[in-house]
Each structure stands twice: as C-alpha cells, then as structure tokens.
C-alpha cells in the first residue's frame, strides 16, 4: 500500500488523494512526475504501467487545467492499482517521458502526442503514430470537430477510363 503522507513528505504537500468506487487516485504536479513514478516503481513495487492517456478539459465545467495526463499503474505482486493524474497546460504542454522506467510507455506516449499534442521530453522517437505524418491537428482535442476539417476528402479521384 502506498501511504499518502510518505509521498507528501518526499515530494511536497501538493499531492492529493481521492477515491471513486475501487479506484484510488493521486493528483501530482508536473514537476515531480519522474521522481515520483520512479519511486513508485522501485520502492512500492508498481512494476507494470498499464496505460497512459490524457483528457482534454476544455468543455468540462469548472475545470481549471486544459489537460491532464493519466497514468494507470499496477503492482503485479499484490494486485494493487493506482491512478496518477498530472495537470498539463498550454502553451508548453510537456512532460518528462517515463520510457526509461517502462518500455511499454513508448507507444502510449506517442499516442498521447499524436492525439493531444502533449509532448514528452526524453522520449527517443516521438513521432505521430496513428495519423499521417503530414496531419497538422490533434484530433482528440475538444476544439477539433468530429468530422474533421475536410482532410478525409483531400485525394485525387480515379475514374474508369483513367485507370
């Protein structure tokens, strides 16, 4: 079990904890992401990174930050799960990469970059992964329309006689 007060002692008092159903979550500032996750991995045995994702809070009433990046951790020996949430804001939406801790983070971080435009410093190969390389928007941001901006129609037409 991770004890909140221990974490607060080590990484400052800005760490908050909350529960919903069986999910246990801690909110941490962006500055301590790498040291805190390192300590969670090495000292508390969270040896598996289940998921990294992000949420865009643009249209969420009462939200104070633009994005948050969400890490799902799992301790394989005890089966304990922990959700770590980190607020990120524009214009410099950058977090340190956790690739050095878990190699599974590689593609997850690339996907967050591709879909939300949150970049990860120290990632070895941060390229677009799902969208074409020349795509210039971030589709899962709330200000990008569901039906796109016409990119899906931007192709040459091949006719019968032309082929």
């Amino acid at each position: 079990m991770v004890c909140l007060s221990e974490l607060q002692q080590k990484f400052g008092a800005k760490i908050a904890e909350s529960h919903f159903r069986d999910n246990r979550r801690i909110d941490i500032p962006a500055a301590v992401v790498l040291p805190l996750l390192t300590s969670l991995k090495t000292e508390y045995g969270f040896n598996m990174l289940v998921d990294i994702t992000a949420v865009d809070w643009l249209e969420y009433e009462g939200a104070t930050d633009r994005f948050s990046v969400v890490y799902q951790l799992l301790n394989l020996d005890t089966g304990e799960r922990l959700t770590v949430r980190v607020p990120v804001n524009l214009p410099d939406a950058v977090l340190p990469s956790v690739y050095s801790l878990w190699r599974g983070a590689d593609w997850m971080e690339r996907e967050v970059w591709d879909m939300f435009g949150i970049s990860f410093s120290g990632h070895p190969d941060l390229r677009r992964i799902l969208m074409p390389e020349e795509f210039d928007a971030f589709p899962l941001r709330k200000d990008y329309p569901l039906k796109g901006r016409g990119e899906r129609h931007n192709f040459p037409v091949i006719t019968r006689s032309g082929s």
């Binding site: 919903f20 159903r21 999910n23 289940v50 949420v55 969420y60 799902q72 959700t83």
Partner: peptide, 20 residues
C-alpha cells in the same frame, strides 16, 4: 472518472471513462 478492465481474449481490455 473511472478505470475498469476485463480480461478480454487478448488481455486486459480497459476503459477509462470521464463522466460529465
């Protein structure tokens, strides 16, 4: 927000849902 997962044939298939 909630994260819940099941064991799908391929492994852990989880959904992270934000309710509003």
């Amino acid at each position: 927000q909630i994260y819940a997962a099941t064991e799908s044939p391929n492994g852990e298939l989880g959904f992270y849902i934000v309710g509003n």
